[in-house]
Structure formats: C-alpha cells, structure tokens
Design a protein around this nucleic acid. Structure first.
Length: 463
RNA sequence: GGUGGGUUGGCCGAGAGGCGAGGCAACGGACUGCAAAUCCGUGUACACGGGUUCAAAUCCCGUACCCACCUCCA
C-alpha cells in the first residue's frame, strides 16, 4: 500500500514517489515574524510535522526546510510603530514563534533559513531571470525589478487561473510595471526606510520581494527539483504561483507535489490580530496543555476547515485524557518508538493522504480494547504499545520529553507522601464505614486537583 | 467577474453508491458503601427541490446559504 498525498497542482490524491528513493525533501513556507503566533499559525507547523513523522515511519530520510521571512513592509511598519528597530522586532517575534512550536512538539526543521541571510542567492536568481528574458528592471528609475508574467505562458497553472480573468489589484501601483500583474522580485529602497533594511544590488540598494525568497532558499537547500512544497491555502495564489513561475522560468523543475493546509477560523472568520489576543498560543495554553491543543489540531484532517471553539477544544482534551488514563492504568510500555506496533488500519489511514481522523478512530478503538482487557482482569501490554506508537506518529505521546515530563521529582515525592497519608486515613474511615469522613477526604483532595480512583488493588491518584 | 472549498445527529468531526468512523455530551445497565474511572447497551444525521439507480449522505441537474483566494495573511 503506497503512501498517497493530495497534490494541489493536479487536484488529486496520488502516489508519493520521491525523486530519490528513501529520501524526501520538503519546503514549508514559514511565517513572517511580525507578530506573536496564534493557533492558526501553528496549525501549519503541526500538519507538516505529522507529514514529516509519517514519511520517516515509511522509511524516508526527510530534509525539512522551513523558512523565516524576516523583512517585509509590515515588519518595517510594525517596528516603527513600536519604536523598535525592525531587526529587533523580528528577533523577539522569532523567539515567540520558536516557543510556540516547542510547546506543540513541532520538531525544529533540518534547517531554518532566514530571508535576510540569503540576499546574494536571490540576486543571482533575479539576474538569471533577467538574462533569460523573464524579468526586467523598472523603467522608472525606482530600482524595482519585476517578473514579466507575459513572458511565461504557464503562469497560472498551479491555481488554474487564466491571467486574463484575474482581477487586477485595485490599489496596484503600476509604477514601472509593464503589466499590472507583474510582481516585484526586488524592491528599490525608499528614503523613508531605514538603511539597515536595504542591500546593494546591480539595480541600486533595495530589498527582496516576498516570493523570490522562497524560490532562492528552496533551490539552495533542496536543489533545483525537490519533492514537496507546503504552506497554508492562502499562499496558493499569488505566493506559490509566483514561486513556481520564477523557479521554472529560471530553468528549475521545482516542487513535485504541492500540499496546502486549511484554515482555522473563529466565528466564521479568518484569525487575525483584529480578533484580539485570545487565540495566541500562550493564551490558549492557559486553558489546555500543549499536548491537548495538538491533539485537537491533529484530530481533524489537514485539508479541512476547522472552526475553532473552546468547547470543541475542551472536548478534544477530554478525549485525549481518556487515552492517557488508559496508558496510566496499563502500566509501562517498552521504551522507544515501535512502528511495528502500529495497527494496519492506522497505517492505511495515514497512507491515505494523512487521514488523521480515521487514524485517531483506530487509536480510540485500541484504547477501548485495552480497557476491556483490563476490565476483564487481563493485561493490555499489546494495546498500550500500539497506542503509544500511534500517539508518537501524531506527536502526542504523553511520555515524550517535549511535554516537559515530571516537572519536579522532589515535589512529586512530597505530594505523594502527603496524599498517601490522606488515603490511609480514608481507608481507615472506609473500614469503619464512616462514609462521611471518607468522602470528605476524597472531596478535599479533588478540590486540590487530586483525583482518586479506587481499584481492586487499592486507590490510586492522579492530578 | 474568475478560481477553489464547504453545509453530516445535542456538539465536534470522518466517510464518498449498499454494511451507522471515532470522540464529547445524554440516558439505561454492570462494577462501587456512594462516587470517579472502566465496560456493555441506546441514535434510523447527512442544507433544500428534482432526477439516475435494485440501492444515494455519497452520482447528475437546479436552488439557498457559508467560506477562502484573485491585496507581501498559515
């Protein structure tokens, strides 16, 4: 059963055939580091982290590149607004982003190139496009360089749009463009902009356009042809269309597969800063743990719209705790990840364009089977191992050190001793049939966040 | 105007011609001193109107509503 992935370019789910057997190269458009990340931003990171994990299970060595856009109009504007140097703003925002990814157990990419560190590569690519007749410096002396859309007949193929049908942007400033649809490869510096935000080029000082960054960096780290290019759906046009046009016009094959994750909306609308701070990752994590948020994201398909709600988030957290509860009851499992322990149905679901919802259903089926075995007095080691293997693929294994593990062993020891004392007291009360006293102890522990579970082998507790 | 996606039970969320994914919640039963946890059981859901078919949530036609992109937004 081959792994099949949905390719936006062909609009179908097709077999994944890597350019080099046993290897997969992925380029994911990262974020523009101009503001703190919200839940929607990290969904992309989580979706492609799951893809990466699954490719690895399937025996591929994965080279995963995720860029950082650290120079653009908004960054300059925001920096000025906040009285910060633009590069100071991006440094702070980048740290927030790293933290958000870490809180959701999104593995760091193989390499994370920053746009500002790759200006020479971009200039080289722009020069190549000019030489080939697909780009031109603006005639108005602005120092801008544009891609010549009319010179590339395939333009529009990724999103299947005809150039003539496209609505020209109303606010498009034609400046030195030959056609309003031509887009900037290089933007000449303006006097109002800080000098640190421009670099020398054959066309005068300036800075790169957005699209050229990704073409240059993907080419540098993955080569002229690579397997998968990913990002959010909104990037299909113009960003990805433009990237593909540039790279192919420069003679590169570029991506074999295009994968796009869907949105998270709130109140039916796209998440944005105007909706307030409530959905920033650190704020959401005041309500649920990182692993629970990640479970919520992974439980729906990456190409499906998710309407974010705290109610749904709470439900997901409850479902996840059920799984955790099973693992605790089942006792320990052998260490290490065990792809061999993955149920077939789980693998089939994942092979079908990362069918995480069906995969999660298998997870729950296995948990129920394990719980049944335990309820019947048997052992559930096989189920527990399978569950942990599945959770590992989804990046939500509770024992993954990424979640921080036991916060403080000494403290845990202290609490354990205190709770043990109270449980002994309760056991005496129960033996005396002093139910009021027994229940009082249980209620007080519960109020403190300690849940008591009576088992045939005596009570256990968890937080 | 062009392009793409959607509308599934109280809620979330899969599926894509026949066999009721899974979760959360609810109700009944088992277990328990009572609970909790767990197990067992309980649902004739697929926007609307037509059509095709032995069979439609799934295909076709039409309608309504929603969303995204065509602006340097994951």
């Amino acid at each position: 059963m081959p792994l099949r992935l949905h390719d936006t370019a062909t609009r179908e789910v097709r077999d994944f055939v890597p350019l080099r057997p046993g290897h997969a190269g992925i380029y994911l458009c990262g974020l523009t580091v101009q503001s703190a990340p919200h839940v929607g931003h990290v969904r992309s990171g989580v979706c492609f982290d799951v893809l990466r994990r699954w490719l690895e299970v399937r025996g591929h060595e994965v080279t995963f590149i995720r860029n950082v856009t650290d120079i653009d109009d908004k960054i300059l504007a925001k920096g000025e607004e906040q009285g910060l140097a633009w590069w100071a703003l991006t440094a702070v925002t980048k740290r927030q982003l790293d933290e958000a990814y870490a809180l959701l157990n999104v593995a760091p990419p193989t390499y994370e190139p920053a746009a500002t560190a790759h200006v020479p590569e971009m200039l080289e690519l722009i020069g190549e496009l000019i030489d080939r007749g697909h780009a031109y410096p603006a005639a108005d002396g602005s120092g801008d360089v544009y891609f010549d859309v009319a010179s590339w007949p395939a333009y529009g193929e990724l999103t299947r749009q005809r150039v003539d049908d496209m609505e020209a942007a109303e606010d498009a400033d034609p400046r030195g463009k030959r056609d309003p649809r031509d887009f900037a490869l290089w933007k000449g510096a303006k006097d109002s902009e800080p000098r640190t935000a421009s670099w020398p080029s054959p066309w005068g000082r300036g800075r790169p356009g957005w699209h050229i960054e990704c073409s240059a960096m993907a080419g540098k780290y993955l080569g002229d042809a690579f397997d998968i290019h990913g990002g959010g759906v909104d990037l299909r046009f113009p960003h990805h269309e433009n990237e593909q046009a540039q790279s192919r016009a420069a003679g590169q094959d570029f991506a074999s597969y295009w994968m796009h994750n869907a949105w998270i909306t709130t109140s039916g609308e796209k998440m944005s800063k105007s909706l307030g701070n409530s959905l920033l990752v650190p704020n959401v994590l005041e309500r649920v743990r990182g692993v629970e948020l990640r479970y919520y994201l992974v439980a729906s398909h990456y190409r499906s719209h998710v309407e974010f709600s705290f109610e749904a988030l709470d439900e997901a957290a409850a479902a996840y705790r059920r799984v955790e509860g099973f693992l605790e009851r089942a006792g320990g499992t052998p260490a290490g990840d065990l792809p061999d322990a993955l149920p077939d149905a789980f693998a089939i679901a994942m092979d079908d364009d990362l069918g995480t919802p069906a995969a999660v259903a298998v997870l729950h089926d296995t948990v129920r089977a394990g719980n049944s075995a335990l309820a019947a007095g048997g052992d559930a080691a096989a189920e527990a191992t399978a569950v942990r293997a599945m959770l590992g693929v989804l990046g939500v294994d509770p024992d993954d050190p990424a979640w921080g593990g036991r916060s403080d062993d000494r403290l845990t020891g202290v609490v354990d001793a205190l709770v043990a004392g109270l449980l002994e007291e309760r056991a005496r009360a129960r033996a005396d049939k002093d139910w009021a006293r027994a229940d009082d102890i249980r209620d007080r522990l519960k109020a403190a966040g300690v849940e008591i579970t009576d088992t045939p082998d005596g009570p256990t507790w968890s937080t």
